[in-house]
Design a protein around this nucleic acid. Structure first.
Lengths: 152, 152
DNA sequence: CGCAGTCGGTTGAGCTTTCAACTACCTCGC
DNA sequence: GCGAGGTAGTTGAAAGCTCAACCGACTGCG
């Protein structure tokens, strides 16, 4: 392994700011959702994705990809959500290995109740702290990182 | 509570890109560190902060602030790091409630071994995917979010 | 002084995540 | 068709995080 290219001052500043902001932000959002809706952010995302899907239903694997979650994590998470009656599991008609996750009415109601507070928190911590240029920059930066994360 | 201000298309795009990039990025960095150094990113950060402190020592509360971690989390984490011999706990001379955490030589060696791979991963996933303007923008955005996260 | 409130840190229980197996099913080539 | 290898999803154990309760030490005020 060759001599590592350390970060220069500007890069270091950007990286640390990004790191710190992310930790603070996710902590705040997680706490907010836990407090007001009783679920962690990853579970909230699962409900969001299901609510946007046709028939409020997705294959487990599609849901895992949409939420950027491992199969295992999703499996555990859906099990918990099912216990609470917010998601229902059903067999897939075309592939007997497959499972469909469907958002129940109760789950949708939970999401509807949680969404305003969550959006308000996102605004308060992120959107309203940035000017329109920065919003566009953030989108471009995020997309560049996502594009680069495909390989690993 | 009044009608929530939902995110418009641009805001939604920025938020989702940020969210997704962050999840992907932290997953990748965590896996990289776990694989190559056998520690999670939060533990790595603890070692980094201690290594930068004078006498490689910090009060637990200072360390908690520096790593943006809860007291409880830090307490558990330092306990694990101590078990592995990478950190040593000592009593504080001026405040009998206080505890000092000191990075051991073994801990420093672990950090030295882990750092190049970690920096390379940060470069690969973030820095090298952005142009110099974007690096500066990311720093400014991160700092704005940090500034806003002070209250809650 | 004395004591009420705060601060620094730890602990244990419960929950989420990860990792590595494991089962069941599908697919493709022979 | 049948076997090898890949795919979909689950499971259990181990690890980390959160929350609330807790203890001991400090601080400030009457």
């Amino acid at each position: 392994m060759s001599e590592p290219r350390w970060l220069n001052a500007e890069e270091q500043r950007a990286w640390r700011a990004y790191l710190e902001s992310t930790i603070l932000l996710f902590d705040a959002l997680d706490r907010q959702l836990q407090r007001e809706a009783g679920l962690p952010h990853t579970y909230y995302e699962i409900l969001v994705r299901l609510s946007e899907a046709s028939a409020r239903t997705l294959r487990m694997s599609e849901l895992a990809q949409a939420t950027r979650s491992s199969r295992s994590r999703l499996s555990h998470a859906v099990a918990r959500l099912e216990e609470r009656g917010w998601v229902r599991r059903r067999d897939c008609a075309t592939d007997r290995r497959g499972q469909l996750a469907e958002l129940t009415d109760a789950g949708f109601a939970v999401l509807e109740a949680a969404a305003p507070g969550h959006v308000a928190a996102v605004r308060r911590h992120v959107i309203d702290r940035l000017d329109p240029d920065q919003i566009a920059q953030l989108a471009a930066i995020g997309e560049a990182i996502v594009a680069g994360a495909v390989e690993d």
